[in-house]
């Protein structure tokens, strides 16, 4: 149903390090979940419009009015590391692709 490579790929995307036995376990679990979803393929959806959100509500907006932000001290209070008013993160060398 789902192969080892796919499990490792998905784990890598989620930045998860898996031990060999965990890969086997996840292979089985994710395989079961995917099998369960196959059931949906049997349903005839020819005349059903796609659902993008479970709530039947649209257009919830806010007006463009400024609300006070948090104080810098509060914002930084959970940061493992900070300097002046910056967050500090491990050095990023790799350039980001995409936007």
């Amino acid at each position: 149903m789902i192969d080892r490579e796919t499990i490792l790929h998905v784990a890598n995307l989620a930045r998860l390090e898996l031990k060999d036995d965990e890969v086997d376990k996840l292979k089985e679990d994710l395989g079961n979940i995917l099998n369960y979803f196959i059931t949906l393929n049997d349903v005839n959806t020819d005349n059903v419009t796609p659902t993008f959100h479970p709530f039947p509500i649209n257009n919830i907006f806010r007006e463009d009015i400024v609300k006070e932000s948090f104080s810098v001290d509060d914002i930084l209070s959970n940061a493992p590391s900070s300097a002046t008013t910056y967050f500090l993160v491990p050095r990023i060398v790799e350039e980001k692709n995409g936007n």
């Binding site: 400024v66 609300k67 932000s69 948090f70 810098v72 914002i75 002046t84 008013t85 910056y86």
Partner: peptide, 17 residues
């Protein structure tokens, strides 16, 4: 969110949850 979009403010001063 309602945080300001101004340019050049003190770092992390226009930030909320």
């Amino acid at each position: 969110c309602g945080c300001r979009t101004s340019f050049g403010d003190k770092p992390n001063s226009n930030v909320c949850p």
